[in-house]
Amino acid sequence: MADVITRLDPTSRAAARGFSDMTIRNLFIIPTIVFLIVFNVFPLIYSLWTAFTDYRASTAAAANFVGLANFRELLSDPDIWRNFTITAKYVVITVTGQVIVGFGLAMLLNRKIPLKGLITTLLLLPMMLSPAVVGLFWKLLYDPSFGIINYFLGLGKFEWLAQPQMALWAVALVDIWMWSPFVMLLSLAGLSAVPKHLYEAAEIDRAGPFYTFFRITLPLVAPILMIAIIFRTMEAFKTFDHAYILSTQPTTELIAIRLYKMAFLEWQTGMSSAFAYIVLIVVVAITNIYVKYLNKAKAR
């Protein structure tokens, strides 16, 4: 095996620069793999183990194997189900909002307009910001007494984040603001790939704008839009930063927040590992449904 690695293809660019395959392995591949193992693979396996124990990272006590007890307790806890329900609602609101806003923006941008590049870049800014920072300044924007949102909407001292029913929508709105550009970017790529001659053919065939949209645009953009939806769903499920900063309402306690509290405030390490695995399974399952649709859309 070692000979195979050390043998240098004399025509390769690495050889031309004086790098052997061995050097490349040592310089780039091994560090990456080590990093992956230490920070990804090991925690993944270790947390799977702790999920079946009563381990608490805050004590020196040895972990006892408890079998499926953690899972049983979690799944029979109505509070956990409430967290799931809130999260599901949050995912539906944000992803729907992002697809509508993002795709809408992409449709508007997918034509010849002046300063298109600049406008696109500006629209992409929100998703380049740190979610924690976004949470902090939206908290200011939402502020009932001096927030600019109430000022512009003339809502007086409207409590965006303190009202239990409103808070989730307010948090979701921030997510929509932040991540619609992502959907827009992917949609824009999809839209610009639709051949122009199809639109011309449709025009000659007297297809109306709606017919053209649903018969030509949407089917061709659907696969890439589906990818955007997959990404956003996965991300929305694990939303933490801005939601945690914006609201402490029980009605905005997403699973990631509950998980954080369980793991690092209550120090139920074993229990929270089990919880994390439940979340993982749910996300993988949902993603799989999407992927199935995606493959179907591609196959058609």
Partner: peptide, 21 residues
């Protein structure tokens, strides 16, 4: 310039299904 994801029949019907006809 055939309309993608439609059948042959769908393509042939396309211009006839316009609201203006």
């Amino acid at each position: 310039s055939l309309y993608p994801r439609l059948t042959v029949r769908g393509n042939l019907e396309f211009p006839l299904r316009s609201k203006t006809r």
